[in-house]
């Protein structure tokens, strides 16, 4: 039961993080800069454990498009070793850096691409989680260039209009 609930949560939060990063492209210059710096055609697969939810995306030069299936072609694959670790990460109790420090990640692909992804996820978390949570897990908080409420509203509208 607990595992099923964690799966449901992770599935939802992965979609939320993806949508937030997409919306931040037009709300936050730092996010826009990171995204525009990605090589066109770069694919990410973020897996949260064996048989657990995963997110597959592709940067097409204009946006971070969600893919329905795991890319067969070469991509940057980040696998979180256990679903429990993924749950801790996506509930704002640990940063990606700390998960890395605990050997919680397996990466296939270029480390540089993972560093780009880590900065985007950190930024998205700063918008999605309240400051008292992110202050605990990140050494330094970036200056937010838009209101988190505005981001949530845009993400919500995006879900309503089936954009994500």
């Amino acid at each position: 039961m607990r595992r099923t609930l964690q799966k449901i949560y992770l599935s939802a939060v992965l979609r939320l993080v993806h949508a937030a990063i997409c919306e931040l492209q037009s709300l936050d210059k730092a996010a826009e800069g990171e995204l525009l710096g990605l090589p066109v055609g770069l694919r990410y697969a973020i897996c949260t454990g064996h048989g657990a939810p995963a997110l597959f995306v592709e940067w097409d030069g204009a946006g971070l498009r969600r893919l329905r299936e795991e890319p067969a072609q070469k991509c940057c694959r980040v696998r979180i070793k256990t679903m429990a670790d993924a749950f801790i990460l996506f509930t704002g109790r640990m940063s990606l850096a700390h998960l890395y420090a605990r050997h919680g990640l397996v990466v296939a692909g270029e480390i540089a691409d993972v560093m780009r992804l880590a900065r985007l996820v950190n930024l998205a978390e700063c918008y999605l989680f309240p400051a008292f949570i992110t202050r605990r897990i990140l050494p330094e908080l970036p200056r937010l260039q838009a209101s988190p409420l505005r981001l949530y509203a845009r993400v919500f509208f995006g879900f309503l209009t089936n954009r994500y």
């Binding site: 990606l96 850096a97 890395y100 480390i111 540089a112 560093m115 880590a118 900065r119 050494p139 330094e140």
Partner: peptide
């Protein structure tokens, strides 16, 4: 600087 921030060693630096 752009190359350095994509180096894996930076992720565990004590300060961001």
């Amino acid at each position: 600087a752009q190359t350095a921030i994509n180096d894996g060693a930076l992720i565990v630096n004590p300060a961001s």
